[in-house]
Design a protein around this nucleic acid. Structure first.
Length: 504
RNA sequence: GGUACCGUGGCCGAGUGGCUAGGCAGAGGUCUGCAAAACCUCGUACAGCAGUUCGAAUCUGCUCGGUACCUCCA
């Protein structure tokens, strides 16, 4: 197994990855809040961590990947009337809360399927783990790190920080925030609040009778705070200490910071060893987010129905677009960039198809006809595989693959003899491309799958055109080519007289 | 205001002390009946200023510009 290195947000540096239990990896990724439809920004973590999931399995790890569904409501804004986000919207849409949650969960799953993301090992819901959350809250109260006010329970951040700072679990370890600063600036503002300090956060919220989503608890009817579900569920399915905790950078604070505090009280340690955070997708340099009013929903993206879109973009184009950037960099949305991804993917995918058809028998066998060429291929593959171990540098892997594209195409066109490389090198090319593009990056063909019959029809047209051309009847041959073109099918005249076709 | 991060050629984006990624777009060429596709060639970019160094896009300082988090947020 190669040595993996990840940038750990907790230590702010790249670290060698060593799982708690050799050969096994426990990974928790914060899933979606199913109170609305997913947008492009949401796609990033789920694609990024899907690739990590696939990669770890490829390396031979047995991985348990837990990704939750947040289907219990959160309160909107502190200081205002605490309200259950999901319930409020449910009333507006005249739906049962669970009906709404189900609808958006289904849409989320649909989107994940479009992206060819593997299903996580466990996808627990917050509503399905109310009991576990209550138990955890009781434990925190018993240890003296939470207090009850009017049927709500709050985590005492200041006390926690005082007691745990010396043990390396200060409130702020993950985000680098200094609690004292926050206390100073917030104390005055919080006088009318139930909380002792503004930095305290809710573990359980009292629900007014009109709230639809509420559960019985030792503190009365209510619903869980936002952070507790992840602590309870990760603990239940991955244990007190697991390997990787992932999510968007915007969750680093307060969400993940609070998770650490909750778990630290219960289990006396930071729950995960490696904290991985993907950066944001931006649009015109600004983070894509509901509050900025600049989101492009996934259905809009795939359908092209949005004022900012010049055309629809397929799920694989989006996946490829995300792959071409390192996950810790911001990724700026733009039509030009998406179109570049679309074309790049097409080129890569077609070269991959050609590569698979190259015949080992035509190679130089044991002997490379062009040792320089052969070594170059091997070097680019080596480098690609190394890039992946270095904090998941998918962009570098793709760059190396792109350097191999003209080489592959040259073999195919006969510009360069396949005998210039050894059988071993060709086999490795084929194997590495397939492994990375298909198994790890999760790319797949998006062509309609009725091609069996269509192939025959196309062959007929190609034959007719060939005959017309041999008679120098270019009117007919051009008609076939141009009509097909306008239907989205492109004929390609190859070097050796063969004709192939592709979708535009 | 506090805390981080970033500023790379027309666009998107890796990299990070010397060996000038990559994609898309663009230009020229080969091929072609003409195209397309493919292949070949071409852009010496790293916000600005000063410093460290034999050598900096890469390190240090300052300036300018931008972003994120501090509130729900992937």
């Amino acid at each position: 197994m190669p040595t993996l290195r990840f940038f750990n947000s907790l230590t702010r540096q790249k670290e060698v990855f060593e799982p708690v239990t050799p050969g096994h990896v426990g990974m928790y990724v914060c899933g979606p809040t199913v109170s609305g439809e997913s947008h492009l920004g949401h796609a990033r973590p789920f694609i990024t961590f899907d690739i990590l999931f696939r990669y770890l399995m490829h390396l031979g790890y047995k991985v348990r990947y837990v990704r939750n569904i947040t289907d219990a409501g959160h309160f909107e804004e502190e200081g205002r009337v605490a309200e259950d986000k999901i319930s409020t919207k449910a009333v507006l849409e005249k739906l049962e809360p669970m009906e709404l949650v189900q609808k958006y969960t289904n849409m989320f799953h649909w989107a994940m399927h479009q992206f060819n993301n593997l299903e996580p090992s466990i996808e627990p819901t917050a509503t399905g783990h109310i009991v576990e959350q209550i138990v955890m809250i009781e434990r925190i109260i018993a240890d003296g790190y939470a207090y009850v006010v009017n049927g709500s329970v709050y985590f005492d951040v200041e006390k926690y920080h005082r007691d745990f700072e010396g043990r390396g679990m200060a409130y702020g370890v993950l985000s680098g925030r200094v609690l004292d600063d926050q206390l100073e600036t917030t104390r005055v503002l919080s006088s009318q609040d139930e909380k002792r300090n503004k930095s305290d956060f809710a573990l359980w919220k009292h629900a007014a009778p009109e709230h639809i989503m509420q559960w019985k608890s030792p503190w009365g009817m209510g619903f869980p705070g936002w952070h507790i579900e992840c602590s309870a569920m990760s603990n239940k399915y991955l244990g007190e200490r697991f390997d990787i905790h992932g999510g968007g950078m915007d969750l680093q604070f307060p969400h993940h910071e609070c998770e650490i505090a909750q778990s630290a009280v219960c289990n006396h340690q930071i729950p995960a060893r490696y904290w991985l955070h993907n950066n944001m997708i931006t649009i015109n340099g600004k983070k894509m987010g509901k509050s900025y009013n600049n989101v492009i929903k996934l259905s809009e993206l795939f359908g092209g129905h949005h004022s900012m879109l010049e055309q629809p973009y397929s799920p694989m184009t989006v996946r490829f677009f995300i792959l071409q950037t390192h996950y810790r960099s911001t990724l700026d949305f733009g039509n030009e960039a998406l179109q570049a991804a679309e074309r790049g993917l097409k080129r890569m995918w077609e070269a991959f198809g050609h590569l698979e058809k190259l015949d080992v028998a035509a190679t130089g066998g044991q002997q490379a006809g062009d040792p320089v060429q052969d070594a170059q291929c091997q070097r680019l593959l080596d480098e690609a595989e190394e890039s992946m171990t270095d904090d998941l540098n998918t962009a570098k892997v793709m760059a190396n693959f792109f350097e191999l594209v003209p080489v592959i195409n040259s073999f195919r066109d006969g510009h360069v003899q396949l005998s210039s490389i050894t059988a071993t090198t060709l086999k490795r090319l084929q194997q590495v491309f397939r492994t990375y593009l298909v198994d790890i990056f999760g790319l797949r063909d998006e062509k309609p799958s009725d091609s069996g019959r269509l192939d025959s029809v196309m062959q007929l047209l190609i034959d007719i055109r060939r005959e017309a051309r041999s008679r120098k009847d270019f009117a007919t041959s051009d008609k076939i080519r141009n009509q097909l073109q306008s239907m989205g099918i492109q004929l390609k005249d190859e070097k050796d007289g063969r004709v192939s076709w592709t979708y535009l």
